[in-house]
Amino acid sequence: MDETLGTALRRWRDRLSPLDVGRPARPGRRAAGLRREELADLAGLSVDYVVRLEQGRATSPSAQVIASLARALQLQPLERDHAYRLAGLLPPQEGTISTHVPAGVQRMLARLGEFPVGVFSADWTLLSWTPAWAALLGDPSARTPTERNLVRAVFATGPGGLAAWPVLPEGDALNPALVADLRTALVSYPHDRGLISLVEELRSTNAEFTRLWDEGAVGPHVSARKTVVHPQVGEVMCDCDVLTVPGCDVRLVVYTVAAGSADAEKLEFLRVASGVRADGPSPPGPSLFSAP
């Protein structure tokens, strides 16, 4: 029997341990791998849609849906491309930005649940996040993929525009670094229409972006101190670090606070209030795309 997208999804789902995605392995659990409900939650899909995909009743999933499932199932690049082909789609082409998050990064993210961590693609679109990220900065799941782009948010609304409430930086190193990143990404991904459109959009609508771009702005990402003005706990002063992953073009943005400080108490309150576990794995936020 020829393999279908449904049979492949079931096989990939069965091989994942709940612990691999930050879910507790409770005693008496019958399912060997992930339940459909867990896959749906991780991928930002409805359970009914996952059921229809596995049963072959949903026959035309979009590329966004396949990308979301590939991240949730922690597929390797060749497996991801196989999933695209089973869905009747072309895999992502060379010269375009990948939204693939390596399995190792996803496992690490699942075990960093107590820290606010966001995973971004080469064009600074938020791909995934920990529950603590949503607790500190606001839940990104209500935003569209366009609204989850940090560069667009920063230059459209000012520093911290991706957050649901103000994030006030110390210093002005972020904007030149973001422009430099987009310039580098254009060299690496010259055929990515989304990236080209983003640069064209900002050059035509934002004077500061245009100035930095025309000046050939360069600037590495450095550790920075930022103040999050949270509606429940007020100001939370955090250190923000950008970590790159060798071998793939994703970066992790990590917020931390000094142990034993008032800021640590505020972050702990937000974690508890949102149900984030500090004593074990917590599931990462949903994938970039939502679907039926």
Results as ranks from 00 to 15, higher is better:
L126N: 03
L127R: 00
S128D: 06
S128P: 02
S128G: 12
W129Q: 01
T130R: 07
T130N: 05
P131W: 02
P131G: 12
A132I: 04
A132F: 06
A132E: 02
A132G: 03
W133A: 10
A134I: 09
A134P: 05
L136F: 12
L137E: 00
L137W: 03
G138M: 14
D139C: 05
D139H: 06
D139F: 10
P140A: 09
A142Y: 02
R143T: 08
T144L: 05
T144F: 00
T146Y: 06
T146Q: 03
E147K: 06
R148K: 14
N149H: 09
L150G: 01
L150C: 10
L150Q: 12
V151R: 00
R152F: 10
R152Y: 09
F155I: 10
F155D: 00
A156T: 14
T157N: 10
G158Q: 09
G158W: 13
G158L: 08
P159M: 14
P159W: 12
G161Q: 08
G161K: 10
G161T: 09
L162Q: 01
L162G: 01
L162R: 01
A164P: 07
P166H: 03
P166G: 04
V167N: 01
V167G: 06
L168G: 00
L168D: 07
P169G: 11
P169L: 13
E170S: 15
D172A: 15
D172G: 13
A173N: 08
L174Y: 03
L174Q: 09
N175R: 15
P176L: 11
A177Y: 09
L178I: 03
L178P: 00
L178N: 00
V179H: 11
V179C: 13
A180F: 07
A180M: 06
A180R: 04
D181W: 04
T184V: 13
T184Q: 13
A185D: 00
A185G: 02
L186Q: 10
S188I: 08
P190T: 08
G194I: 00
G194L: 00
L195Q: 05
L195G: 05
I196C: 03
I196Q: 13
I196D: 07
L198D: 03
V199S: 08
V199H: 08
E200D: 15
S204V: 10
S204E: 15
T205G: 04
T205Q: 11
T205F: 01
T205E: 12
N206F: 04
A207F: 08
F209G: 03
T210C: 04
T210A: 15
T210S: 12
T210F: 00
R211G: 07
L212W: 02
L212E: 02
W213P: 06
W213R: 09
D214V: 07
E215Q: 15
A217F: 11
V218Y: 03
G219H: 01
G219E: 01
P220L: 04
S223Q: 13
S223F: 01
A224H: 04
T227C: 07
V228P: 02
V228S: 07
V229N: 07
V229M: 13
H230I: 06
P231L: 06
P231V: 02
Q232P: 01
Q232W: 12
Q232S: 12
Q232H: 13
V233D: 00
V233S: 02
V233T: 09
G234R: 05
E235Y: 05
V236S: 02
M237W: 10
M237A: 15
C238R: 05
C238Y: 04
D239N: 06
D239I: 06
D239W: 11
